[in-house]
């Protein structure tokens, strides 16, 4: 009996130690990286910023550009809306509900994706699709994390499903970012900005990447650049994220307004530009339902 109790106590202690660095971040609050934070705390803040968990809701339009090595480009235009919920909301089990509607080109116009993300990190998203070719809402299995997100060079995990709990982190140091030169507009971004350089390894093994090195900007509180290494340890992809700050009710909301990813093996690039970004517009939770998907007519 004593052995059992000792074992249970040990399990609790190990569990406590593993979570010792975890912050208890509250939804709808802005967090900034503070000096002295552990690497786990930094990554939690980074995730909070990435999914705009500091806001009540989020809305933007955007363009996705798929650029072939030859320069040939395809485009998608979309409208994205999100309501952030969380444990203190009237629907405490949900993290956020997200709606993406494609508006151009005509071949995909009307395609809508409704996702409900849960606070429980072990629970996958629920997803519904409005498919113009079926004219009905279809409950779908969430795409696998390593699948391409909407045909882009991003994976689904990188855009919608990666959670803080999915990786382990090692702080490699603090350094000034070398800068990223966009192949889209030839501008060099963020050279000399103060960053944390962090190695992130997926807990899932084997997985489509073995590690990524990320640069977390101290001011923005989130990742500005990722180097992603394949399962053999070779660098195969880099991801750049640009931020803007919006003043909302006296608070600074840092949010991504441009993403650029390049697959170094194929030379293919994907660029995502967000426009007309708005926060806290008073979106209602009931808007994020199948009824809204059924409004689609295309």
């Amino acid at each position: 009996m004593k052995k059992v109790l000792l074992f249970l106590a040990l399990v609790c202690l190990v569990g406590f130690c593993l979570n010792a660095d975890a912050l208890d971040l509250v939804f709808h609050q802005v967090y900034k990286i503070q000096p002295g934070m552990s690497v786990d705390e930094i990554m939690q803040v980074s995730e909070h910023v990435q999914y705009t968990l500091f806001a009540d809701d989020y809305q933007s339009t955007g363009n996705v550009l798929y650029v072939e090595k030859t320069g040939a480009t395809r485009t998608r235009k979309f409208l994205r809306q999100r309501i952030v919920l969380g444990p203190d909301s009237q629907s405490p089990e949900y993290r956020y509900k997200d709606l993406i509607m494609f508006t151009q080109p005509t071949s995909v116009k009307g395609l809508g994706i409704l996702s409900w993300s849960y606070v429980d990190a072990d629970r996958d998203q629920d997803q519904w699709l409005w498919l113009p070719s079926l004219k009905k809402v279809r409950k779908v299995s969430a795409a696998q994390g390593d699948d391409s997100f909407m045909g882009s060079d991003f994976t689904t995990e990188e855009i919608t499903t990666r959670r803080y709990e999915d990786e382990t982190y090692t702080l490699l140091g603090e350094e000034k970012f070398k800068g990223f030169t966009s192949e889209h507009d030839n501008q060099t971004y963020y050279a000399g900005r103060d960053c944390y350089k962090i190695e992130c390894k997926p807990k899932r093994d084997p997985w489509y990447y073995s590690k990524r090195i990320t640069w977390v900007d101290k001011e923005f509180g989130s990742t500005i650049y990722d180097e992603v290494y394949d399962s053999k340890g070779n660098l195969y992809k880099n991801i750049f994220k640009r931020y803007v700050v919006q003043k909302v009710d006296g608070k600074d909301y840092y949010t991504q307004d441009y993403l650029e990813v390049k697959d170094l093996r194929s030379g293919h690039k994907t660029l995502i530009e967000m426009e007309d970004i708005k926060f806290d517009q008073g979106l209602e939770e009931d808007y994020f339902s199948e009824r809204t998907l059924r409004r689609s007519k295309w």
Partner: peptide, 20 residues
């Protein structure tokens, strides 16, 4: 009805299936 098995606590191999 339709249901995506988003949790796999009891039967992990069923996670990810959508039943309709």
């Amino acid at each position: 009805f339709s249901k995506t098995l988003t949790e796999g606590f009891w039967l992990p191999f069923l996670k990810g299936w959508t039943l309709r």
